[in-house]
Design a protein around this nucleic acid. Structure first.
Length: 209
DNA sequence: GAGTGTCC
DNA sequence: GTGC
């Protein structure tokens, strides 16, 4: 058993990384996602090599993460609509800030929220989040809908990875010494969730600049 | 430039 | 699971 230093619903993954169990189960979050996707729809992006990325993505906030033949980057315009991404809802900013503070990173003000939609059979391979200008800010990742297995390793690609189950409402926060740790999501298993149907929605809050 | 994918 |  882990010692109860942070509360019965928190798991420590590594120094600077923790899971806040059930921190983000409010139904308003998914209502906001629906509104965002009505303006900037979910779409498949491509790797710079031209291969399709399995998850469907959209963004809200001042900056959105995009990938295409031109590379990985953050930009203010949605390439699909040519317009700015939908603004980040105030509730998202507050939720991400509260989660970060609880995990030991006070003052987090995200300017980017990448929204990923997983369906059964889709995964995200091990990678680092390193496209952000401000690596001093943490990453806040909210899981909604179908459960998934999260892999979390270390700062080197060869470091061992541990697996952690993520359920609806769980929030993973990592920063400081864990900010560049490798992570990914195993292939989503078939299922249905009352809040999302046959899908998992992930919100990733970042300070991109 | 690219590996959020695919091959061995 | 690994290296690319």
């Amino acid at each position: 058993m882990q010692p109860d230093l942070f509360g019965p619903r928190d798991d420590i993954l590594a120094p600077g990384a923790m899971i806040l169990r059930g921190f983000a189960a409010q139904p308003e979050i998914l209502a906001e996602v629906t509104r965002i996707a009505a303006v900037s729809p979910f779409r498949h992006m491509q790797t710079p090599g031209g291969r399709p990325i399995g998850v469907e993505m959209t963004n809200c906030g001042a900056l959105g993460w995009v990938s295409d033949r031109g590379g990985y980057r953050y930009q203010a315009q949605d390439p699909l609509t040519g317009r700015p991404w939908p603004p980040m809802p105030a509730g998202f900013v507050a939720l991400a800030g509260a989660a970060a503070a609880r995990a030991g990173f006070p003052g987090f003000r995200p300017d980017a929220c990448l929204i990923n939609r997983y369906v059964p059979g889709v995964k995200m391979g091990l990678h680092q989040d390193r496209d952000e200008a401000d690596l001093g800010a943490p990453i806040v990742s909210v899981s909604l809908g179908l459960p998934a297995t999260f892999q979390f390793g270390g700062p080197e690609r060869r470091d061992p990875v541990a697996k952690h189950g993520l359920a609806h409402g769980d929030v993973v926060v990592w920063g400081g010494p864990a900010r560049l740790n490798w992570h990914g999501i195993l292939t989503l298993k078939p299922g249905e969730h009352p809040a999302t149907g046959a899908a998992r929605i992930n919100l990733t809050f970042r300070r991109a600049r």
